[in-house]
Amino acid sequence: MEFGPHLMLAILEGAVGASVLALTALGLSLVFGVMRVVNVAHGEFFMLGAVVAWFVANSIAGHPAIGFLAALAIAPLIAGAVAMLVDRLILKNVAYDPEATIVGTIGVLYILQQSALMIYGPEARPVEPPFSHRIALPWVEWGENGLAFFYPWGLSITSYKLFVIVAAIAILLAFWLVMSRTRLGLIMRATQMDRETALAFGIPVQRVYSIVFGFGAALAALAAVLIVPIQQAHYLMGHDPLLLSFIVVIIGGLGSVRGTIVAALLIGMSDGIISVFLSPTLSKIIATLLVALVLVFRPQGLFGKKMA
């Protein structure tokens, strides 16, 4: 394939990755923004979503779309419920101390991951996409006879991948509506701004924390259900989303929703493009070093405002 079509393919693949990453990172960002804690087990809630999706899709007979829709509803609920349990049993009891929370959620990471290994097994298993049509994409080029219009071999995308991008945008919009237009969103924003005052105004901060922690995990699980027909469900699959979400949340500015989404696009796209042209490992080395240096020299993130 020539450079132009190859680049376009890389951009499309990057966009699929970026939209799933935006959802996952948004969950991490929300939890950090409202609760001021880092959830190291976030990637495992992603994995949980994928694994639950596999179980659901395989226990429902009939057209794959039915199983997929069921998974889309059930996986985030289960991941959210597990996360709320973690919040009640662990985070609440260490009083949301930042360091204790990190150590505790590292423990949760291993517990979830290894439980998945015991129950689900070490295999990687696919979930059948609800629909999947190969869509060949056109390319234009100056040829001998002027502008030529043709379909280069290999330049194609599946309808399901386009659906992932659209679905992610829809979920992001819904998230924005919830945060800005509903009472629940108002309460979450109030808790984020000033925990003490929110408490004084009768907001049940403890319950808000549980809901936010569950909500964050549910977003990761939702992202996983979307991606699992393209990737496969595996008990170690939580590692990369966790790392990339960290990178996104830090570069976007800790706790800033807009920054998170911009950074997810930037990181997801560049990860996709660099992976295609150079090497996936090299792109990750660049990203991790970039994050470390951003945290050292610009702790408010590339897009965040300086905190007082």
């Binding site: 360091e99 080395i285 945290l295 050292v296």
Partner: peptide, 28 residues
């Protein structure tokens, strides 16, 4: 020299990221 410019959670994440890039470099 780099990581000690940060404190608390940021220090933990900076060290995590440096270690991750060392690990990836070993693979690369």
């Amino acid at each position: 020299l780099l990581a000690l410019r940060t404190i608390g959670v940021a220090f933990m994440i900076v060290t995590l990221m440096f270690a991750q890039s060392v690990y990836l470099t070993a693979l690369y």
